[in-house]
């Protein structure tokens, strides 16, 4: 219980930090703190597998990518002028959403199961139980989510394409370009050969 209270406070403070801190890196780190606190909460429920996955996937991969992008773009503390009307609309929407969440949580007739029951059900949070549920009962949802993620990935690659490098790329260019870009360029060139349409047209058509 003590651990729960401490970690709950940590995760809420971290979540507040994400939206209140000005420096983007600090905000991202604050999110890492929240994710790690949630992982510790999983551990208190004996859901070790979930905790490890939470750390590997969110803290170890996704947040590192976030930070990477923030550093790459070199976003400094910047405050764009925000339209006051828009700001108030955002506050109102946020309040409505928060009220809805709290009301939903309070009005839900189902009782939250006791921690001991959860612990019993998770059986030390072993991977087999989760695999049975994930690849049995929720197989369709699992597949759909996979397709959704793949769509996002393809979409992101399509968006960053700026056409193939003109004719013979210089050696310095080739050296500088990382594998992903080289890949993208190659896929792009292949697409042009088969489709015969420049990527910009593709992009415009997509919109």
């Amino acid at each position: 219980m003590v651990t729960f209270v401490i970690m709950a406070v940590f995760s809420v403070v971290g979540a507040l930090g994400v939206i209140l801190l000005r420096q983007p890196i600090h905000a991202a780190l604050s999110l890492v703190g929240t994710l790690l606190s949630v992982a510790v909460l999983f551990v208190t429920l004996q859901a070790h597998f979930l905790a490890a996955i939470q750390v590997i996937v969110y803290a170890g991969a996704i947040m590192v990518l976030f930070l990477f992008v923030i550093m790459l773009l070199n976003i400094e503390e910047q405050r764009r002028p925000v339209m006051p009307a828009l700001r108030w609309a955002a506050y109102a929407l946020g309040l409505v959403a928060a009220a809805g969440l709290i009301a939903g949580a309070l009005l839900d007739p189902r009782q939250a199961p006791d921690a001991a029951v959860v612990r019993e059900t998770l059986q030390g949070g072993n991977a087999e139980l989760i695999a049975e549920v994930l690849f049995g009962e929720f197989m369709l949802a699992f597949q759909l989510v996979s397709v959704l993620l793949l769509t996002g990935l393809v979409g992101a690659v399509a968006l960053v394409q700026r056409g193939p490098p003109p004719g013979g790329a210089t050696r310095a260019d080739a050296t500088r370009a990382d594998a992903t870009r080289a890949d993208a360029a190659r896929a792009d060139a292949a697409g042009q050969r088969s489709g015969g349409r420049p990527p910009d047209a593709l992009e415009a058509g997509g919109r």
């Binding site: 070790h48 597998f49 490890a52 590997i56």
Partner: peptide
Amino acid sequence: EIGVLYILA
């Protein structure tokens, strides 16, 4: 139980 994942995490 999840020693491998623990080290990776």
